[in-house]
Each structure stands twice: as C-alpha cells, then as structure tokens.
C-alpha cells in the first residue's frame, strides 16, 4: 500500500478493503503478537488482580518534536499513569484518529515509534482502532491509549496516607517537555537545544515499591498544568499544606532562560518524564539514594514537604526568603507581553 498511497485517505477509515490493507501492512505487521494476530474485535487477557487501568488521549502539536513524537508520548503517558497507581503496566490498547492527508511515511514513523517504545516498556499492544476524519476536522493525528497492569503487592498508594512531614521528591528536571513543544510552536519558535523529557517511569516505580512498599504514600506524574497544579490539587484534596523551596527546584539553565524570556513559570509547564514521589520522611535519604542510582532518577532531589500549617495551600519559600502562595493553573499559561 505504501506504493499505492502517499497520504492517508478517507477510505482508509471506511472499514472496507482500504482499511484492511492499512491495518495489514502497517498495524498488524508491526505489532504482531498472539493477541492481535487473532484479528478479533478485542483481546482476552488472563491476569490476576488487583489491576490498575488508565486511559489518555494525545493531541500534541507538533506531532514530531525535539526528543520524541506523539507515538512515543502515547505509550509513555499511559504506562506512567498506570505506574502512578503503584502498578506495573502489561497491556495497552491503541486507537488512532487520523486526519485525511497525513503522509503515510509519517504515519509509519509514528507506528514504528509506538512499537519501539512499547517494547522498551515491556508492554504489548493487544487491541486497537483506526479512524480517518476529513481534512480540517482533526490535527494530523490523535492517539488514545488505555493501559492495564497489576498492582504491586506492597503498594499502598493513596493521597489519604500523606502525613505531616512527608517529603516531596522529584526524579529530575522540570518543564522540559512543555518548553520543547513551545520552542517549535508556530509563532513562538525560538532556537534552543531543549528536548522533551518524555520517558517511562514504571521500572523506577517498581524498584521504589520493592524497596520501600507502604512507606511510599503517593506517586504523581505532573504532566499538563505542571508541578504547581498537581501539588495544589493534592493539598486541596487532603486539607494539608505544602511547603516548596524555590532554591531546590531543578530547572535546567536553557529551560529557565526560555521560561524567563516568554514570561512562563516552570512550575506550571508540562512534563512527560517527571516523577513526584511523596514518601515518609524516615526513608527520604534512602529513596533519594535509590533514585539516583536509576537512570530515570539521576537528578533526584527533595523539593518540599507536607505540613499542617496553611491547610490546602501550597506556599513557596522564594530564594530571597520571601513567601508566596502557589495557585493551580487557570486555563492555558500564556506568554507575557513584555
């Protein structure tokens, strides 16, 4: 079919012969496994519970960006969401909504990327769907993935288990993904070497649970809305306060500079490979030590803690010794005028 069509046509989503061709030559060939090879309407899975399940849709623009593409993101995003439940992801569903006119080589590249990423993450694509919409009714390609995984036997992940004094630990630098995307967005382009941090976090999560079990109270993956939004959400939900230290926040030089120029706060910028670990204070040093020995946690650092003072509020201690409230993101973060 690659010789016959240079672009995706509406017919590729018709359910007829063209669809079959597209699926056979790109999807089934790439992802071949015992579940998919049955070419059935769904997959029959034989796994023991408790199970965790999560779904996410990916609409990023541009679809290819520095450090990854929408396909890679679609696997990492859902794998990480399942991992945040304290579970090890095993299977994914994969649905494409393709806009008519997408070049077939780009579609192939995305599919290949999904495959490579799924292999690295040790998850299998067991069911899926492909639809095509008219030109102008989509934005090149949208992907939905749903993931399912088994909960780690020692995981007791719940925001309600957070105690006063619990430490907030990050695995690495903030705001990389959002700024990589921003640097390539039409109208805002700027030259930089900032690359997205898109990556998988479940192996690190597994190691942490193997070692510390119930001492880990919560995992979060601060994607859209950034760290600020995730922490304010938790603080509001459990009625405890959060203290953050500006000096401790890991932001790479180039990212800090780009945020400064555009008037954006890295605390609100999206991440795709940041893990927030909320752990009992008694294991802080060991957690940091374990994380720093894992390639996904090399730059692990404690950025704050939970308190019973100022309930439901996140308060940042600035580098010069002042304080301010960190509120959740409202709408989109917009570049400032000057």
């Amino acid at each position: 079919m690659s010789n016959k069509y240079s672009h995706i046509h509406l017919g590729h989503g018709s359910g007829g012969l063209m669809t079959r061709e597209l699926l056979d030559e790109i999807i089934f060939k790439t992802f071949s496994n015992p579940f998919l090879d049955k070419k059935h309407d769904g997959a029959i899975l034989d796994i023991a519970g408790p199970l965790a399940m999560s779904t996410d849709s990916f609409v990023v623009s541009p679809i290819f960006f520095k450090g990854g593409n929408i396909g890679e993101l679609a696997v990492h995003g859902t794998v990480n969401d399942v991992a945040m439940c304290g579970a090890i992801p095993l299977y994914l569903s994969l649905s494409f909504i393709v806009e008519e006119g997408l070049p077939v080589p780009q579609f192939r590249e995305i599919v290949d990327s999904v495959k490579r990423t799924a292999d690295t993450c040790e998850v299998q694509i067991v069911t899926g769907d492909t639809k095509v919409v008219e030109k102008g009714k989509g934005d090149k390609i949208f992907i939905n993935t749903t993931g399912i995984g088994t909960v780690h036997p020692r995981a007791r992940i719940s925001a309600n288990r957070i105690q006063e004094g619990d430490k907030i630990i990050l695995n690495g630098f903030l705001a990389q993904h959002g700024m990589a995307i921003m640097s390539q967005r039409e109208g805002l382009e700027f030259e930089s070497d900032i690359v997205s941090d898109t990556t998988y976090l479940h192996f690190l999560v597994r190691e942490l649970l193997d070692a510390f079990g119930e001492k880990i109270h919560l995992f979060r993956d601060p994607t859209r809305g950034g760290l600020a939004s995730v922490l304010s959400e938790i603080a509001t939900d459990i009625g405890k306060g959060v203290v953050l230290y500006e000096k401790a926040l890991p932001v790479e030089k180039q990212v800090a500079a780009a945020c400064e120029i555009l008037g954006l706060d890295p605390l609100y910028v999206a991440n795709e490979g940041v893990l927030v670990v909320i752990a009992d204070a008694s294991v802080e040093a060991e957690v940091l030590d374990l994380m720093r020995r894992n390639p996904k946690g090399e730059h692990a650092v404690t950025v704050g803690s939970f308190t019973t003072e100022h309930p439901s509020k996140v308060v940042m201690h600035s580098s010069i010794g002042g304080k301010r409230v960190v509120s959740p993101l409202l709408g989109e973060q917009l570049p400032r005028i000057c």
Binding site: S318, I320, G322, K323, R324, C338
Partner: peptide
C-alpha cells in the same frame, strides 16, 4: 513586571 516580581518573590512582607 516590578509588581509581579515584588509579590512573586515575597518582597512586600520583607
């Protein structure tokens, strides 16, 4: 921009 920085860095209370 100065107002923003005064408030954001907690200078007013200092």
């Amino acid at each position: 921009g100065q107002t923003h920085s005064l408030v954001r860095n907690g200078i007013l209370e200092l």
